[in-house]
């Protein structure tokens, strides 16, 4: 029993990081119907912002988190403005290839400055409590709690504010909504800023939990988060959160009860089966193709 509880805690920690990154994919898809494959690398840049702020400016946790979130948000907006906007009318494939290119650019740009894996200093003093045989670290609790707070905040913005309403409207119809006086570019920029800042926050938490970072760290986790977004129903914000936790849970529990060599194989087979029965994801709705 304690073993299971321990693994559930592990799954919550991993799942909350997947969920935060998956949100970035899903928001961009929701508004532009394009997959921002550079998102995993923006997550990596977030981890590096955390490293820079903590190592060279010696800042504590909260300012570091804010710097990383704002920095990555600005970078996301810039990328949208200069790399994706000129292609908004181009075929979808061109935008996706551009996104891959942006990702490779970010990796290699970081590589120039940090060819070695870097060590992120401890920002939160870690204490481990043992409750009934289950080891709970303060870091684990902070990551889970902070992710939940950020997700609730995002959910609030999208559902209850004017900006959120504009985002939902634009994802509904990009041609008519601007005619109602809604600034299209501004809303798209805001979407990118929100989505990527969550990726940046995930980067910071990841760097704190796993304090060795390198320029390629975003690739694998970016793919996994993308899968989480698809499983939850891409374009749906609550779906991305659920998808992130499902993927984290499946990965950890497969490794916990089967030989760990089968982990990715079994985990992704399960997800594929899920997609056979729900091809639009758990909360996704079929979108009729407009002609």
């Amino acid at each position: 029993m304690t073993y299971l509880l321990q693994q559930v805690l592990n799954a919550l920690q991993l799942g909350s990081i997947y969920a935060l990154i998956a949100l970035g994919y899903t928001m961009v898809y929701g508004i532009l119907t394009m997959i921002n494959f550079a998102h995993g690398d923006l997550f990596m840049v977030g981890a590096f912002f955390c490293f820079l702020a903590a190592t060279f400016l010696h800042l504590p946790f909260v300012p570091t988190l804010l710097i990383a979130m704002i920095g990555v948000a600005l970078l996301g907006v810039l990328i949208e403005r200069f790399a994706y906007k000129p292609l908004r009318q181009a075929p979808r494939v061109s935008a996706i290839i551009t996104a891959l290119g942006v990702g490779i650019f970010l990796e290699n740009f970081t590589l120039v400055f940090a060819p070695y894996p870097q060590h992120v200093p401890t920002l939160i003093k870690n204490t481990t409590w043992v409750v009934g045989g289950v080891s709970i670290s303060s870091l684990q609790l902070i990551i889970i709690a902070l992710s939940l707070v950020l997700m609730a905040f995002l959910d609030f913005i999208v559902r209850k504010t004017m900006v959120g309403m504009a985002m939902r409207a634009i994802s509904w119809d990009k041609a008519i909504v601007p005619l109602m006086g809604i600034p299209l570019n501004l809303v798209i920029s805001a979407t990118f800023a929100l989505g990527t800042s969550l990726g940046g926050a995930a980067g910071v938490m990841y760097a704190l939990a796993f304090p060795v970072i390198d320029p390629y760290m975003g690739i694998l986790i970016g793919w996994k988060a993308f899968i989480a977004a698809v499983v939850g129903g891409i374009g749906n914000i609550r779906g991305a959160m659920i998808g992130g936790f499902i993927l984290g849970g499946v990965e950890i529990l497969v490794a916990a009860f089967l030989p760990s060599t089968y982990r990715d194989f079994v985990a992704f087979t399960l997800l594929l089966v899920l997609l056979i029965f729900r091809p639009y994801g758990i909360l996704g709705k079929p979108r009729p193709q407009k002609v």
Binding site: Y3, Q6, Q7, N10, A11, Q13, L14, Y206, A209, F210, V212, Y216, M217, I219, L220, I221, E251, I252, L253, A255, A256, P259, S260, T261, R263, D264
Partner: peptide, 20 residues
């Protein structure tokens, strides 16, 4: 006798199993 794949950073599931 636990495994992971290159690029993984979270080893919590395997290590929990090892501890057990």
């Amino acid at each position: 006798f636990e495994t992971y794949t290159t690029g993984d950073k979270d080893f919590s599931a395997q290590l929990t199993k090892i501890k057990e």
